[in-house]
């Protein structure tokens, strides 16, 4: 890897960022629903250079038994980075970082899941990072939330997640790898579409005013992501519909 000198790196060129984005612009986003046949619900997401796949299993029986809760379902979230997901090979297996991300991501999603509908069961969420480019936890949460909906799990809403950062004293939306590594702050946010924040972390330093600006910007990003999450789910259904070629003239409904 080319050693970058932290002191003289320019994050902006003609008012645009290194990848040509504006400060408040998201990276290109692609969401695909139902990519895994064996999972109850699944989702593949690309957020810029991030490639993440999420699989949801359950509700199903809890193993080991002692984790079981009598009145509600438990949620297990496993965030894992593939060894080939980063430039330098990542030692496979859980580490301090992935334990933490699993915990905060689970806590970002749990408030919207109606766990009381499925006592004594478990909802397993697996998030695999295939390619990392800063903001994998947010991509993972976005994918997991769509996969949960795809699995037919009752939820109060989806969760959308997006980060804001500070580079060269400017607040930017959805930082990419260079900005994350050499920037001054990183602030991932997850929220429901009506603005309830379920995850807020900060790495680096921001003044109170900057924090407000960054949270506001990240929330705006979440709203944009929500629209795409929504669209991907609705599109999956219309695909089903076109597959079975529905004649238009039918009037009678039966169920």
């Amino acid at each position: 890897m080319i050693a970058m000198d932290e002191s003289n790196i320019s994050f902006f060129k003609d008012g645009c960022r290194l990848d040509g984005r504006k400060a408040d612009q998201l990276r290109p986003l692609k969401i695909e629903v139902g990519v895994l046949a064996r999972a109850d619900g699944s989702c593949y997401i690309e957020m810029g250079g991030n490639k993440v796949i999420a699989a949801v299993y359950g509700p199903r029986e809890v193993h080991p038994r002692h984790l079981q809760e009598v009145t509600r379902a438990i949620v297990r979230y496993r965030y894992n980075m593939a060894s080939f997901s980063v430039e330098e090979r990542k030692r496979p297996g859980p580490d301090r970082r992935s334990y933490e991300l699993s915990k905060v991501s689970r806590e970002a999603l749990e408030p919207v899941i109606l766990t009381s509908y499925f006592p004594r069961s478990v909802i397993d969420v697996f998030v695999e990072v295939l390619q990392a480019d800063a903001g994998t936890r947010t991509a993972g949460i976005n994918a997991a939330s769509v996969a949960l909906a795809d699995a037919g799990i009752p939820m109060k809403s989806l969760i959308s997640s997006c980060a804001a950062g500070k580079v060269a004293d400017t607040i930017v939306l959805d930082p990419m790898k260079e900005e994350d590594n050499f920037g001054q702050a990183d602030l991932p946010v997850a929220m429901t579409p009506n603005g309830d924040i379920t995850l807020l972390q900060m790495d680096g330093g921001l003044s109170p005013a900057e924090l407000h600006e960054a949270v506001e910007m990240a929330m705006n990003g979440c709203r944009q992501i929500y629209e795409l999450q929504r669209k991907s789910l609705v599109d999956k259904y219309s695909q089903l519909e076109s597959l079975s070629q529905v004649p238009e003239q039918e009037a009678e409904a039966c169920d």
Partner: peptide, 11 residues
């Protein structure tokens, strides 16, 4: 099963 979500299925 495949067409369960469409209208006028019985016919």
């Amino acid at each position: 099963e495949k067409e369960a979500h469409t209208n006028g299925l019985t016919d």
